[in-house]
């Protein structure tokens, strides 16, 4: 019952985007999200949409995987749309119920927000689909190391994340084992209402936590025995290296900025 959980959602296809340095991908995604909120007219939104479409095409990740992310946030999108529709102040009132006014500005805003959220979710999930969790961690460690405030925690946070990634399958296996052991002794996980089922999980969670603590202690001991002393003076087997792909990546980034700025300014005249 737990075997179908995958860690992260990496979808390897070997495309040029997959081969890019994780730092480039993180930076580009970050920039894309920021630009989404700068885009203010039809043309710049179309531009952002085209950028993402091309990226998805190049990555060879099936569209259904990317749209899966949207399914989980349909509710949030609807909520934002409704809120924007009725709460935006404007002169062009179409109809009104008490304090709720439906204005043309409201509709315009709502559509803009919806497009923004959809593109944002698709863009970020594309990044996690084309970057393995390990290289994502490496990239984040490296980038955080360059930010003054985060610098001191970069290594520790990355180490914590990679240990979590390492132990997720182990703990999942263990959970399965405990569930089976409890089932074989007559525990019932499948029937009853929500509260009963939640209660049935207690005999699973207690031994799971206990063993997780034991593992943590063992691991700490093993790490110390292997001379682990934090991030200082550590070297890396796999060092991140920029390639020609990343050069293109950063060139595209500038193209992105230039495109949005130009379209934002000249879009007014085009309309």
């Amino acid at each position: 019952m737990l075997n179908d959980i995958t860690i992260g959602q990496y979808y390897p296809t070997g495309s040029p985007i997959h081969k890019m340095d994780p730092r480039t991908k993180l930076m580009m995604t970050f920039l894309y999200v920021i630009l989404l909120f700068f885009a203010n007219n039809v043309y710049s939104f179309v531009f952002m949409f085209l950028l993402l479409s091309v990226a998805i095409k190049v990555s060879k990740v099936p569209l259904s995987y990317i749209l899966r992310g949207i399914k989980t946030i349909v509710f949030i999108i609807m909520f934002t749309v409704v809120l924007n529709m009725f709460m935006t102040p404007g002169d062009n009132v179409l109809c009104q119920w008490g304090i709720f006014k439906l204005t043309t500005e409201g509709i315009y805003n709502a559509v803009k927000m919806a497009i923004r959220i959809v593109l944002l979710v698709c863009g970020t999930s594309l990044m996690t689909l084309v970057t393995s969790p390990i290289s994502l961690t490496d990239g984040m460690e490296n980038l955080m190391g360059k930010v003054p405030i985060l610098k001191n925690y970069a290594h520790e946070l990355a180490m914590m994340m990679s240990i979590a990634l390492r132990f997720i399958p182990t703990l999942m296996e263990e959970t399965n084992r405990i569930i089976n052991a409890q089932k074989s002794r007559g525990a019932d996980f499948e029937s009853g209402n929500l509260i009963r089922r939640a209660k049935a999980l207690i005999p699973v969670l207690v031994p799971l936590f206990l063993s997780a603590f034991q593992r943590a202690e063992d691991l700490a001991l093993a790490m110390e025995a292997r001379c682990y002393r934090g991030g200082e003076n550590r070297t890396r087997l796999k060092e991140l290296k920029y390639t020609y792909l990343d050069r293109y990546g950063y060139m595209i980034s500038f193209f992105m900025i230039a495109g949005v700025v130009t379209l934002n300014v000249f879009g007014v005249y085009l309309l």
Binding site: S162, R166, R229, R234
Partner: peptide, 20 residues
């Protein structure tokens, strides 16, 4: 409980990485 990294070769490298 003594494997640290998510990939075998990176786990083997853990010790020497710590030694610098």
């Amino acid at each position: 409980n003594q494997m640290v990294a998510t990939i075998v070769e990176e786990d083997v490298a853990f010790g020497p990485e710590n030694l610098g």
